[in-house]
Amino acid sequence: LSSPDGIVSLCSDLGVDHTDVRILMLAWTMQAEKQGYFTLEEWRKGLKALRADTAVKLKKAVLDLDKTVRKSSSFADFYSYSFKYCFTEEKQKSIDTESICILLDLVLGSKFRPQVDSLIQYLKVPGFIVLSFFFFFQLQTDYKVINMDQWMGFYRFCSEINFSTLENYDPDLAWPLILDNFVEWVRSKR
């Protein structure tokens, strides 16, 4: 069992920052249950999957994780895992928007830059009350937390919607309401 401290030292051994997305991916490969902890079982499973039996191989595998995970078809799985990984409480179902913003940036940031920036801006609107955003400040207080459904909605939105025009966004397709509002917000801003 390795504790948060153990993971930090593992990270420095691997030459990766512990907030790097690759560590999240490593956790996913291990299917780690609890944030900040790896059990022996998980550690074994993960290393097996990475085919790493030495520290050098592990380092190389971790460095490449980014590419492999993003290529693989299981990215969606990783995506939903990353959400659940943030749960700190038993039976927790949603995550506060602040953490969500960081997580979004971490997981989707490299792939869907403009969408993520815009979403984060939208989610954080109460953070900077500029006059023109006042209306949305009110609107946005609806979302202090994000649930799984909305989280999965973000990914679908990023990967399916043409963000520059939003032309293929059809509110009748039962998007989560937060995305309806988001799109409305983006449109009104443009």
Binding site: N147, D149, A174
Partner: peptide, 27 residues
């Protein structure tokens, strides 16, 4: 309709409904 959508989402959250894995229009 907006309110209905909200309620649907709340029901999804409480595991009364789920979205179809392929066709997103379907609950």
């Amino acid at each position: 309709p907006g309110e209905i959508k909200k309620r649907i989402e709340s029901l999804i959250e409480r595991d009364f409904l789920e979205r179809d894995s392929t066709d997103r229009r379907v609950y």
